[in-house]
Simulated assay, not measured.
Amino acid sequence: MILKLLENQGKVKRLDVELKRDIEKQVFAAARNNNISSIQFRNVVARKLGLNITDSECLSFLAIKGRATPKELAHYTGLTTGSTTAMLDRLEKSQFIKRKPNPEDRRSVLIEISEKWAKTAAPLVKGIQQSQAELIASYTDEELKIIADFLTRFTNNVIEQTKRVESSPPS
């Protein structure tokens, strides 16, 4: 009888470990799929607006951050400073951004999205924003705390690894 109980406990532990591994794989797959679907969504929005993906990424970054220097945008997009200037010239010509003097550095400017960009992009992203808000609202406060913690830590891992790779010598 005792042997049977110990044998069953061993099976339960194996099942628990297997279940945890399966859930971990599901989380990684979901994170990858989220990244892929986000890229696809941003690409569709860019095409609808006649933008290339780098210009669209710049505008998305500005929409999230509020404003940035050209140097920050060059770093984010991976463009050279010259290419960043050309991108900003295109976006300014399209009236999607505004250049403003940087109050902290007279030699620099700050880039902000314009009202035209906000009005142009809003109808395209309204549906996803509403769907995501409804999804978030469907979770309890405790579940949201866990989700927020996970996403924050997951993002911090990506940021740390980006810095590590960026600072390492080329292969």
Score class of each variant (00 low, 15 high):
residue 13 K to L: 15
residue 33 N to R: 14
residue 70 P to G: 04
residue 5 L to P: 00
residue 113 I to E: 09
residue 62 L to R: 06
residue 119 K to F: 05
residue 46 A to T: 00
residue 127 G to W: 06
residue 45 V to K: 03
residue 57 E to I: 00
residue 91 L to F: 03
residue 75 H to S: 13
residue 126 K to D: 14
residue 37 S to D: 04
residue 118 A to W: 02
residue 128 I to S: 08
residue 118 A to C: 02
residue 157 N to S: 13
residue 118 A to I: 06
residue 25 K to A: 15
residue 104 E to R: 03
residue 1 M to Q: 08
residue 163 K to R: 11
residue 25 K to S: 12
residue 13 K to V: 15
residue 86 A to T: 14
residue 13 K to I: 15
residue 130 Q to E: 14
residue 18 E to D: 13
residue 108 S to A: 14
residue 19 L to V: 08
residue 90 R to F: 09
residue 13 K to H: 10
residue 16 D to K: 10
residue 34 N to A: 14
residue 77 T to Q: 03
residue 16 D to S: 08
residue 35 N to G: 12
residue 98 K to Q: 14
residue 139 Y to E: 02
residue 16 D to Q: 14
residue 63 A to L: 07
residue 9 Q to G: 01
residue 145 K to A: 10
residue 111 I to E: 07
residue 91 L to K: 01
residue 24 E to T: 04
residue 124 L to Q: 07
residue 162 T to E: 06
residue 128 I to H: 08
residue 94 S to V: 01
residue 62 L to I: 09
residue 41 F to I: 05
residue 93 K to G: 05
residue 63 A to R: 07
residue 135 L to I: 14
residue 103 P to Q: 10
residue 25 K to D: 11
residue 149 D to N: 13
residue 78 G to R: 00
residue 82 G to S: 09
residue 68 A to K: 05
residue 47 R to F: 07
residue 73 L to W: 04
residue 95 Q to G: 01
residue 13 K to N: 04
residue 169 P to S: 07
residue 1 M to F: 12
residue 155 T to A: 13
residue 86 A to D: 08
residue 38 S to Y: 02
residue 77 T to I: 02
residue 126 K to H: 15
residue 41 F to D: 04
